[in-house]
């Protein structure tokens, strides 16, 4: 990709940099060339943001539950302790029922499972969770003041300067992806690292995933990894009965996962 094809938003960003108003150190240090090359860019680039159809794909079969994503998310987004924009759950399906845990959101990964639950298992997987960036987001519907919204690119975002922290969105989200930030007293959630994607980077969790279990890209780019996986049509979404129409897709999702 050539620099001349940079989207307007990035061009604006660089202009602001030159004016000395921006503080984004990454671009300061390494220049735009680095950002615009290689696998770190999030899909194809077009002039109009609405032309993107971003999707997040989680390949459950690849996840090893290391918790790198949770740690990176905490660092990238300054997520307070005990609250999570993303977390990883461990499912252990046994004859007598389902064991699920997510110690501290798996920020330190998982300890070896208690022997009582380890033997005679039918299935066990670790499943990353996060905001599903629904097409039909209940959180946006219920926000009384328009402080959470769907961006033109399809990201479900929170306006921190407008949120009054009533908590209705927290109630409305079927995925418990939202919380009231106990430090800022505002609604908080995964943004798909909107600030990174707009700079041509991938979400932090995708960047650090050692297994490529987390993929982010543009479904309008037919050559992207997400497009190929999506086209295979073996994906599932969480809680389809909620009719939220998520844009976060799971591959190899065990039916026990809620």
């Amino acid at each position: 990709m050539e620099n001349s094809k940079m989207p307007d938003s990035r061009r604006e960003f660089l202009v602001r940099l030159l004016e000395g108003t921006a503080t984004a150190t990454v671009l300061m240090v390494f220049g735009p060339g680095v950002m615009a090359h290689g696998p770190e860019t999030g899909g194809t680039e077009r002039a109009d943001d609405a032309d993107h159809k971003y999707a997040y794909i989680i390949d459950v079969g690849k996840c090893i539950g290391c918790g790198n994503c949770v740690r990176a998310c905490k660092r990238e987004n300054s997520v307070p302790t005990d609250y999570f924009r993303t977390w990883v759950e461990r499912y252990v399906v046994r004859e007598e029922g389902v064991y699920v845990d997510s110690p501290k959101g798996a920020i330190e990964g998982f300890e070896q499972l208690n022997k009582r639950f380890r033997d005679n298992i039918k299935l066990s997987r670790t499943v990353p969770k996060m905001c599903n960036h629904c097409h039909n987001p209940p959180c946006v519907q219920v926000c009384p003041v328009g402080a959470t919204f769907k961006s033109p690119e399809g990201f479900v975002l929170v306006d921190r300067d407008y949120c009054m922290a009533c908590g209705y969105c927290v109630q409305a989200c079927p995925y418990a992806a939202r919380f009231i930030n106990p430090v800022e007293h505002k609604s908080d959630k995964c943004t798909w690292c909107y600030h990174r994607v707009k700079k041509g980077l991938l979400p932090a969790c995708v960047t650090v995933c050692p297994q490529k279990a987390r993929l982010f890209g543009d479904l309008n780019d037919i050559d992207s990894e997400v497009s190929k996986l999506f086209e295979a049509d073996q994906w599932m979404v969480l809680k389809p009965e909620m009719h939220t129409d998520p844009t976060c897709f799971y591959i190899g999702l065990p039916r026990e996962v809620v």
């Binding site: 609250y83 999570f84 389902v98 845990d101 997510s102 908590g167 927290v170 109630q171 418990a176």
Partner: peptide, 18 residues
């Protein structure tokens, strides 16, 4: 519920918001 062998709540559900 849900055939759970242990009480499992989503991490963000630990606090009652309302």
């Amino acid at each position: 519920p849900g055939g759970a062998l242990v009480n499992y709540i989503f991490p963000n559900n630990a606090h009652v918001t309302w």
